[in-house]
Design a protein around this nucleic acid. Structure first.
Length: 607
RNA sequence: GGGCCGAUAGCUCAGUCGGUAGAGCAACUGGCUUUUAACCAGUGGGUCGCAGGUUCGAGUCCUGCUCGGCUCACCA
């Protein structure tokens, strides 16, 4: 039999040959079902059996063995209990002549089975009956490989070393692993295989013999993710929110600053875009009379891929009528802390505890305050003797100078190797040169900007914030008071017309949430959209697109409201201590897999 | 796209100064009727990512390429 899709080596050959030998004993090697018993009160999965009977194991210290009398007492009880259960063979069989031990896994837990040559009988899968012939059970067992699926029937007992086990009387073959299992000690090291072949990653996590303290298996990461999402829904439902689903394929890509994926609808004959944000649809629902709505689903952005970025990401977005951004910060904090408490049992503890403390309250800081504070602690600050405070930043020339300076300084730093960079940071002269160059550039830029000067200043402040502050916001911090020109869907602050009543939540240096008091004046909204369109014409590909229907909706009247988007993937990164988004997305997007042969063919074609 | 790092047995990795290709696990054969990453004895397994170059001799040095990781720039 040829399996061209399976690499041919000594391991795969042995497995294939044994599959044929198994076939000659049991008939159908891919039977359709295996019924598990219900002695635990539920379906007797391995986890159910472990949970129900594990407590019966005698308590002994590491390496010690339980007393024989105690074993006898426990086993007198357990031996009366028969179970039928099934799973993947999770260890290479430990065969000792005429008996063997092996562990079965259901992906979560593992249960040891004990197979004795004289006690085990095989099931014929064609007739679903026990095979009479002597020795067939043991013969079948010896053809099993690490990774195969089997079903067993037998009675419970505790071994001399004190481990709960099943003494197998019936053995049924259920499915073959034609590929060898990942290394039982090291698991899979190659991140590419782990992410591309998540199934192998999940198997490896369940088969790995030893784990480092605090190490989460992939299974546990994705179960935690599932719980986070479930608890978010529950919290919102409890607070009167209605979950809705709005279009993912949209005629306009708007509601956020991002490049969309484009596709084409044949029947309508129009382009459609994968949504970059559900925002404008959800606010149409506020117009329609929903006072509290949310959507928890995917958004798509046709941009770079990196440790914080996947082309599709999961966002919780919700809106609450009659609330402003300040109320939304309170609610967001309560939401996150409640979800955390329900998922992890702690109010706010991050997984890599080394960097995090328990925070009872999230800090709040205006963007310009945050910049001023960060600058005071920045090595460039002392070097240049330049003070930065909120008033200083209000000057467009100053803001642009600082933005350009940071751009130059960081570009220079990134070009230099860590080892060679000594002296660079302390080189005051170079830094002063950069500063003067930045000042010259700022002067020119201000002249050229003309009526776009306000937008330019806003972009400068944000750029300074991102370069200087963002990565240092480790503890949960709300940054407030965003410049208005870069917040086209947000209301202005009632205290400062140049500032949007908008906030972003940062944790571990990442933006986790973005919310604001929603702009509900259709006249001003239209103006803001038009300003965005002018930005687009100036070359900003990510400026928003005017949505006339949305303006019409606002014209029917939308109540004052606050809205927020919370990045679920990034939140899960923080909760699991993972440093790349690909670890918390089951099937992250990657470059298409190319085998060596194919790439050679490509080269020939292209060459 | 730029910079840095990597690719050796099925898996995880070592390989010194350029001199016959190594270990553990896995596989195979034999032994062992309560093991715990079982153990004991033995066996097989390599296009050292690909293509050139230097050299008497290259896993090792040089050049180009492929694939991957990290990182910087754009982006949530």
């Amino acid at each position: 039999m040829s399996n061209s899709f399976i690499e041919d080596n000594d391991q795969t050959r042995a497995r294939r040959e044994r599959l044929e030998a198994i076939r000659s004993i049991v008939g159908n090697v891919y039977p359709n079902k295996f019924e598990r018993s219900r002695v635990t009160g539920f379906e007797d999965t391995i986890t159910a059996i472990i949970q129900k009977f594990k407590d019966g194991e005698p308590q002994v210290s590491e390496g010690a063995r339980p007393a024989p009398e105690e074993l006898e007492r426990i086993n007198a009880e357990l031996n009366r209990i028969s179970v039928r259960t099934s799973g993947r063979i999770a260890t290479p069989p430990r065969v000792m002549g005429k008996a063997a031990f092996v562990h079965l896994s259901d992906g979560v837990s593992r249960l040891q089975i004990y197979v004795k040559k004289t006690d085990v009988r095989a099931v014929n899968n064609d007739t679903d009956t026990l095979i009479d012939e002597e020795g067939k059970g043991w013969e079948l067992f010896n053809l099993l490989d690490h990774g195969d699926f089997i079903g067993v029937e037998g009675y419970l007992f505790v071994t001399r070393t004190g481990e709960l086990s099943v003494h197998v009387r019936e053995l049924q073959f259920l499915s073959k692993a034609l590929l060898p299992m990942p290394d039982k000690v090291h698991g899979i090291a190659d991140p590419e295989i782990r992410q591309r072949q998540r199934y192998a990653d999940l198997i490896a996590g369940s088969l790995k013999v030893e784990r480092e303290a605090g190490e989460m298996t992939p299974r546990e990461i994705f179960e935690l993710r599932s719980k986070v999402i479930r608890e978010m829904r529950r919290f919102l439902d409890e607070h009167g929110y209605v979950e809705v689903e709005t279009p993912m394929l949209t005629p306009l890509a708007t509601g956020a600053a991002a490049k969309p994926f484009e596709t084409y609808h044949n029947a309508l004959g129009i382009p459609l875009y994968a949504r970059i944000a559900p925002e404008l649809y959800l606010k149409r629902l506020l117009v329609g009379g929903f006072e509290k709505v949310y959507e928890l689903n995917r958004n798509f952005r046709n941009e770079g891929i990196g440790y914080r970025w996947n082309p599709e990401f999961t966002m919780l977005e919700f809106y609450c009528a009659y609330m402003d951004a300040n109320g939304m910060m309170d609610f967001c904090e309560e939401l996150l802390q409640t979800v955390l408490e329900r998922v992890t049992g702690n109010r706010f503890i991050f997984r890599d505890a080394g960097n995090f403390q328990v925070s009872t309250h999230f800090a709040r800081l205006s963007m310009k305050q945050a910049i001023a504070e960060a600058w005071a602690h920045n090595p460039f600050s002392a070097l240049l003797g330049q003070d930065v405070d909120e008033e200083w930043l209000d000057d467009a020339f100053n803001a642009h100078t600082l933005a350009v300076f940071l751009r130059r300084a960081s570009a220079e730093n990134s070009m230099v190797d860590d080892e060679e960079s000594e002296g660079l940071e302390t080189d005051a002269e170079t830094m002063e040169d950069y500063w003067h160059l930045a000042e010259e550039e700022a002067e020119r830029a201000l002249e050229e900007a003309g009526d776009a000067a306000e937008t330019q200043a806003a972009q400068d402040i944000v750029e300074i914030f991102e370069k200087l502050v963002e990565s240092s916001l480790i503890q949960p911090t709300f940054i407030t008071d965003f410049p208005k020109p870069i917040s086209p869907l947000s209301k202005a602050s009632p205290f400062d017309p140049t500032v949007a009543e908008r906030f972003e939540l940062f944790i571990r240096g990442m933006e986790i949430a973005n919310g604001f008091s929603e702009l509900n004046d259709p006249v001003e909204q239209r103006e803001r959209f038009l300003e965005q369109m002018r930005e687009r014409e100036r070359g900003d590909e990510e400026a928003m697109v005017l949505d006339e229907d949305y303006i019409r909706a606002l014209s029917y009247g939308m109540p004052p409201a606050a809205g927020i988007g919370i990045g679920i993937d990034r939140l899960v990164m923080i909760l699991t201590g993972k440093h790349t988004i690909r670890e918390v997305i089951l099937f992250p997007h990657m470059r298409p897999e190319r085998k060596a042969k194919e790439s050679e063919e490509r080269e020939v074609e292209e060459g």
